[in-house]
Nucleic acid binder design. Structure first.
Lengths: 342, 342
DNA sequence: TACATTTGTTCAAACGTTTGAAATATAACT
DNA sequence: AGTTATATTTCAAACGTTTGAACAAATGTA
């Protein structure tokens, strides 16, 4: 039942040639005869040979492993990003090993250590929200491990980073609402101390300025990010004497809550009130009216992060890699909730 | 910039002792003096030593890697299961490497090969829907790799399998609706050639039989699993002369479609029509009324699968592992859409 | 004192592969 | 046949760690 797995040496003995011949034949070495290559392939197949990556990796100093660290695997944004990463890295012959930080810095640090022990060639990470110190990543770099950060990044750290342009996104969304004919846009935001929200708000303000409109403090509600909070915030806005005729909610869940409030007030969406969400959560297509939102390109972000790692891996010797920060421009997903008012 | 990473030998030289002493000290060998252990630890820390798992693994014949194969990483059910897997395996000191089959058998087979090369100690998989042949898993087993299947399993294959009891789930859901006072339950199903749907339908029928009710063929609609299909199916049912007063939808998306149809007909939920979904997709708490559904325990499934692998790994020598099929009993999540009619 | 035990450490081989240099076989010219 | 070039294969060392056996030193026992 438990017979030892066949190795390159077994194949060599079986064929009466040397192990190195087998190795070279399998790796398609130019100086090996086609004949031996064929025969080796056949015998390997026949004996059920599987290459041992640990031996290969040890010898070559390359594991073929890339580590990915996210706060939680099951959060839609991250799992989609991981898919994007796997798609390109798998294609390129790398295996990805994943770890969760549970949004705790110390777990993140520990995970980096696990990865370094595993000899990963690169680490792609979206950091825990309280991670301030980046010495664990610096340690990785010192060990020759490539590092790429996405979405939740450390601007000060000199590595490739992929993020989305929240300002631009909010700009586009706000413009879209005005273009559709809505005249007064209320904004419901998550905690403004978090950078993304802050930037989105800035985008909104920028459009007001650009189009020569007055910024009205009272049209902004800052709240936490639960469904209920979205509902309350919307209620507060809609119950004003001059309620807005559109709500730009800086997260889809907030938008959902807002929709509930609007519906309770008997207002038609999108005819009387336009709604715009943010993030493209998967439920946004399921609600009614379907929710216009901003695609954060989680999958593409994963793609980009993976490509960035590949670039670094390939630029290996040519010492000339200059860390770059890529800012992806998000795309509006116009659905029913914000469509053509007039 | 690119200095070689310190090895056990470097530590040994630095301290003037032998590499084996260092190795033994680090692995807390009983015959090593506390003094040396302390010192080794200190120097290791000081030189920034990181163990090389490839060397360790090669020598020990263990990689500390577990492979996970799912159709798609980003599907909520799977990513949640992966979280469940990572939680217990990470804790146990294993790293998990993941791969997607994209629901294609050949990719699944290829992925198994990749994992075998990577010397994973175990594989946890949810198979592609068209996978019929299981020789790739048999090959893995022959290589001494443990195999555990979850959710989408191969009953014929003699390995640990974790699945949920669809029959039981449907039974509970149906009973719940009757208990709430609904009298006539329409059922909207996905393709009945797929086993889970078939089993759920059976559960529904069983309750009718148990409670002495007549089974009415006309209350069953079989359709594909899109939102639109759910809506149409529900419309069809609600527009009958004697429409049902509750709809048991065998997937949450179908339920969402059904809710739209019901709402359009001006019927109140849950007062006039009760709705029950299946799977606990994350949007179910966001809709209004919040959707009662069946929790498929994706995370726990991952936990169980991981524990099963651990058991096998630990039972290694004791040759006495008997493959078992665990059937998890799903839990109803009673929310607003099915609550207390009278 | 001689011998056995215990404690701490070193030796040397092994895990399975890769790789440049060296060796051999084969073919190609004078 | 002798030489040179070329194609193919083998040699041997290396990658970093672990591990049982062997050794040495310290301690205990008779």
């Amino acid at each position: 039942m438990k017979k030892r797995k066949p190795t390159i040496v077994d194949i060599a003995n079986y064929m009466g040639i040397s192990p190195s011949a087998v190795s070279k034949a399998m790796s398609n070495h130019p100086r090996m005869s086609e004949k031996t290559k064929k025969e080796v392939a056949k015998v390997a197949e026949q004996l059920g040979y599987q290459r041992n990556n640990m031996a290969t990796g040890l010898r070559k100093g390359k594991s073929g492993l890339i580590g990915v660290i996210v706060p939680y695997i099951h959060v839609n944004f991250f799992s989609t990003a991981i898919k994007g990463i796997e798609d390109v890295l798998g294609q390129a012959g790398y295996s990805i090993v994943i770890g969760q930080s549970k949004d705790e810095t110390n777990k993140e640090v520990a995970q980096v250590d696990v990865f370094l022990n595993a000899q990963v060639e690169g680490i792609i990470a979206s950091i825990a929200s309280n991670t301030k110190d980046s010495s664990h990543f610096i340690k990785a770099l010192a060990n020759g491990v490539k590092v790429v950060l996405f979405d939740r990044t450390i601007p000060e750290l000199d590595v490739d980073q992929i993020m989305i342009d929240d300002f631009d996104a909010a700009t586009k969304a706000t413009k879209h609402l005005f273009d559709q004919g809505y005249g007064k846009i209320g904004l419901i935001s998550g905690p403004l101390e978090l950078l993304p929200y802050k930037r989105r708000l800035d985008g909104y303000k920028a459009v007001l300025a650009q189009t020569g409109r007055e910024f009205d403090e009272n049209l902004i509600v800052e709240t936490d990010i639960s469904l209920e909070s979205g509902k309350k915030a919307a209620a507060q806005l809609m119950d004003r004497k001059n309620p807005p005729d559109a709500l730009f909610c800086l997260s889809d869940v907030l938008a959902l809550g807002a929709m509930n409030a609007v519906r309770e007030r008997g207002k038609k969406m999108p005819e009387e009130v336009g709604i715009m969400g943010f993030s493209n959560e998967n439920f946004t297509t399921y609600v009614s009216p379907s929710l216009s939102t901003v695609d954060q390109f989680s999958e593409q972000m994963g793609n980009h992060a993976a490509k960035a790692i590949l670039n670094q891996l390939r630029a290996e010797e040519s010492h000339n890699h200059v860390p770059s920060k890529q800012v992806l421009s998000p795309k509006l997903l116009i659905r029913e909730s914000s469509k053509i008012r007039k």
